[in-house]
Structure formats: C-alpha cells, structure tokens
Design a binder for these strands. Sequence first.
DNA 1: ACGACAAATGATATGTTGTAACATGCTACA
DNA 2: TGTAGCATGTTACAACATATCATTTGTCGT
Lengths: 153, 153
Amino acid sequence: MDHVEKIIGHAEQQCKAHGVRLTVKRKQVLAGLIQSDKALSAYEIVDFCTRHYGQTMPAMSVYRILEFLEHEHLVHKLSLANKYVACAHISCGHAHAVPQFLICRQCSKVKEISIQPATIAELRQSVNEAGFKLVTTQLEMNCLCEGCIAQAA
Amino acid sequence: MDHVEKIIGHAEQQCKAHGVRLTVKRKQVLAGLIQSDKALSAYEIVDFCTRHYGQTMPAMSVYRILEFLEHEHLVHKLSLANKYVACAHISCGHAHAVPQFLICRQCSKVKEISIQPATIAELRQSVNEAGFKLVTTQLEMNCLCEGCIAQAA
DNA sequence: ACGACAAATGATATGTTGTAACATGCTACA
DNA sequence: TGTAGCATGTTACAACATATCATTTGTCGT
C-alpha cells in the first residue's frame, strides 16, 4: 500500500465519519492531486483522469468533485492561480489552523505553511482598522520555489 | 475640473515623464476605474466604456489597455477576484510601498492599505523558512466591507 | 429481494475570462 | 512627406466555470 493509497484511506475514514461517500471518481480526482507535487487546474485534472483511468472524465464532474472535496477539507482552491491542491494534512488526524499557501509563479509548486498566530493577528488588526473584516485567514502568496530560483540564477 | 479629471491629469503627467502616451482610450478605461468605487472585471469595463463613450470598446483593447496601465502603476490587477482597480495613490506624487488589498467578497469594494513593515517582514521570514521567496508583497485578502457586514446583520 | 427515495454522475449547452494573430490606423520625427 | 513604431480594430479561439435536466447508482425500510 503506497503513500497515495494510505492518504486516500485516511480521507475515506474522514468522509465516513461525516456521513458522506468518497466514491471512485472522487478518489480518482483526489489521487491525482495527491500524486502531483504542484497545483493543477480543473482541466489538467480532467486530462490526468482521462489518461490514467481509461475513460473520459467530464469537466463538469471534476468541478463538482472539487467542490465536494473542498467542502470536506481534502483539497484547497487557490484563487491566485485558478488551480487546486490536495490538503497537505489529510493524514494528520487532528484539526489544523487555516493554512497559508506559497505558490510558485513559475511551476505552480505549492507549499502549505502556518504563519505565526501573532502575525495573523497583526494582519487582522490592520484589516479591522480599515473597516473591513477578514473572511478567511487563508492567504495566497506569489512566490518562487527553490528549484525555480536556482534555475533563474 | 472634477475629481476624476484631476487624477487623470496626474496620470498624464506621469506617463509623459516615462515617455509613454495616455491616449484617449486609455483615459476612458482609467476614468471608468477611478469613478467606480469597486473593482471591475474587464468585461464590466467594456460595458462601461461602450455605454459612456458611444462606441463599442472591444474586450481585446481593454485587456491591452489594462496591461499598459498596470505597467505604469496606474491600476492593479486583483487575482483573487479577476478584477481591476485604479491605484489609490495616483495623485500623491511620491513613491509608495507595495499595497495590500482588502476585497469585499460580496460587493467587490476594495480598500488599498499598507500593513506594518514589521508584519510584512514576519511574513517574508516565514516564506523564506519554507524555502520559497516572495515575488511581491502585494497581498489580497478576502473580506467583507462595512456596508455588507451591516447588511448581513 | 423489492421499491422508493436521495445522492452521484452524464450530457449538453452556455457564460465568463483571457490570448493569438494579423490588419489597419495614427503620430512623431527625420 | 515618408516612414517607422506604436496603438487600435477584427476575428478567432483557448481556458475556466456554471446551469439544467436526464440517467444511473446506492441506501434503506419493508
């Protein structure tokens, strides 16, 4: 049982606990995202599934499935890039803070981090002073990853 | 000479100083964004210009013009919302730090703020620790504005 | 096991956002 | 005034996303 399957297993447990089903198609989409070390667009997922599982996966289904997986906190949507990533903490088995995402502009590689609560609090404070309220502390930041920095140098 | 025209005047000076031209069409697009208190999509700008200036403005032109205006730091693209706003500081006449944007999820109203340099430094530090490098400190945050908070209550 | 209901997926159409490529027009300057 | 370069027009299409209704599949009570 490889790495990916293990994570899928965890995800399945989580879904069962919530009284929802992790169907075959949903597993396929989630597995695609887990295997990928970078964020994928919905249509890249379509291609992946169509190539790997021998039948065409309609875009409509992928969007529906992504919505489901996002709702179950198994994937995150990155609005900065219009792409999707598997949650980095499916297997941890405990609750997590809202994550922040570092997205490589060059290659779409994504790192999920947790910045200091104090820093978050400072941000929230600045937002409040401006008369707005933060809806989510999920931040997305335009970055370059190690690999792409090295390559550019 | 009203508020909008004054800002356009400043923008024109800036362009002249850079040896580029703020043409009629470019002024129309910029004026549309300045008049709007919220972020507009490219196609909303198309509609605005077509309605206000009596001839249809092709989407292609709007995208080209937005690219130009962004390059001149007269507008900002908000990737979180796929929308565009006029820079809040065109008339200030002095250099500004990279801004952060609070975007109302509900109504697209945007506030441009400058968060504490210390907070920015903490963020950059967290990013570096993860092995990435921040490409820009332009942050975009999902928020609710005062009006929409009041309405929701 | 069976029927009925709900959930999931299929199929088709369409809306929204953005770019490519090439033609035409405008402006400034030699 | 000619011309080179920039700006805009035009058309086509790629990429991203949602709406709607039909069909299939899974679950549950009987």
